[in-house]
Design a protein around this nucleic acid. Structure first.
Lengths: 243, 243
DNA sequence: CAAAATCAATTGTCAGACAAATAAAAGTCT
DNA sequence: AGACTTTTATTTGTCTGACAATTGATTTTG
């Protein structure tokens, strides 16, 4: 946390946040360690307290620290848990997709390629619980009165169960963006044209394959789902171009 | 950006940051749109300027906005570019791995599964440039005087070229954490025991397969590399346990 | 007309103060 | 003595007001 060779780029609060972040990543500050009080940090870095506070807020925004008021309060190095990392990943992925004119084809290709990376593990290890979740979501997707938003949410839940079935938390984390950030995209593009029946049928193939621990069948079903999604998107875009 | 149904959780600065973030994600604030000045925001949200500033710093930490001083300055919705998202992903992944006692086996499994998801696309589309990068990194890895750190960095560069060969930026982004965050882990674990020769040989198999557009051979080589990495980690851990 | 000086708006930083929360310490009653 | 209450000290959260630094726009000047 010392001011060793500060690269002096950006604002003071950014520099200070960088110093503390580096200290955390380097392991100089371990989880649950308490940082000096804001007043002490201000003295150490030779800045005012508001500046220190801005730096701490930057770190808090990345879930690197948490703060607590009171006598024994202060800023503590946060144990970065999976849900926090998930949320960040989803936010970042959503923004990245919405701001970079990524084609649906490219996004779909990435999403399904990553999801297929889970099939082998998921076929091998999925628990009864994961299978039950898939079946339940399929059942929900078959209900006639379901809104488009709810259908998409259920779709996401189904695929998350597939990914979680691999029983590898690192995998689940990495896939969070790919699976969840697609929801608004699919919502916007395909909800007018898609056949829920067909999607549920493909979901059924995937669930059956995973239950039978047949990874290549699950692979094939995912590929078919990808092809269907891409063709839907193509149709919608064509219709839009003609109009 | 209105204070519509504020969930009132956490600090004021967190609430305000959340409001603005939601507005950006919902598309109410488009890229390069200028936010009101800090004074105006303070008035709108009925808080003081330091509180607004803390909120803005939170958003800046996530690269959602950028600020500019001067007459026409202010806070602008930032175009989230891939490099920014990469950096965030790598930081988050690194912390997640270091703070959650993830076993080497789990991390390796995820990493190589994701990387194998790229082989089909990369075999199909890799450019001469990607192949040249791989060869160059392999050449560097063969030099005797290379430090462990430099070898690892080159290793990462090689795998990044593999991933980038898929010519899918969404894929490259999603893989950034998996590929780059492993570097410190591998560095710490296997640098004592590994045979560079063997690793370079496997890299050669991968590069050859991609050049021949043979995805399944590349797959097999990656699987072999995974097995070798895991066995190395196992050896090191066993030796550590005996000591 | 072009260059220089001025201006105005905005963020960056600072100082000091008070409020709110919180746990430890001290005090009080049974 | 022990349990409960009150006080106190520490720390973060927020506010007010001010000034410096930056930078584009405006005005002045050669």
């Amino acid at each position: 946390m010392k001011k060793t060779t500060p690269p002096k780029q950006g604002d003071l609060s950014a520099q200070i946040a960088g110093s503390i972040r580096d200290a955390i990543i380097a392991g100089d500050l371990i989880v649950d360690a308490r940082l000096p009080s804001e007043a002490e940090l201000a003295e150490q870095f030779e800045v005012s307290r508001p500046t220190v506070r801005e730096a701490l807020k930057r770190l808090a925004a990345q879930a690197l620290i948490r703060t607590q008021r009171g006598a024994t309060g202060g800023a503590f190095v946060n144990h970065l848990k999976y849900p926090d990392a998930y949320a960040q990943q989803i936010t970042t992925s959503t923004l990245l997709l919405s701001m970079n004119e990524v084609s649906i084809v490219t996004a779909c290709e990435a999403r399904f390629a990553l999801e297929r990376a889970c099939t082998r593990l998921s076929a091998e290890r999925r628990s009864a619980d994961h299978l039950a979740t898939m079946r339940a979501e399929m059942h929900r997707q078959s209900q006639p009165g379901l809104s488009d938003e709810a259908f998409c949410a259920s779709d996401v839940a189904f695929h998350r169960a597939l990914v979680d079935g691999a029983q590898n938390p690192v995998m689940s984390y990495q896939l969070a963006g790919a699976v969840e950030a697609m929801q608004p995209l699919m919502n916007m593009i395909t909800f007018t044209a898609r056949s829920r029946e067909r999607i549920v049928a493909l979901h059924g193939q995937i669930a059956d394959a995973l239950e039978a621990q047949n990874a290549s069948d699950a692979d094939a079903a995912l590929t078919a789902l990808e092809a269907y999604t891409v063709s839907l998107a193509q149709d919608v875009l064509d219709a839009r171009a003609q109009r």
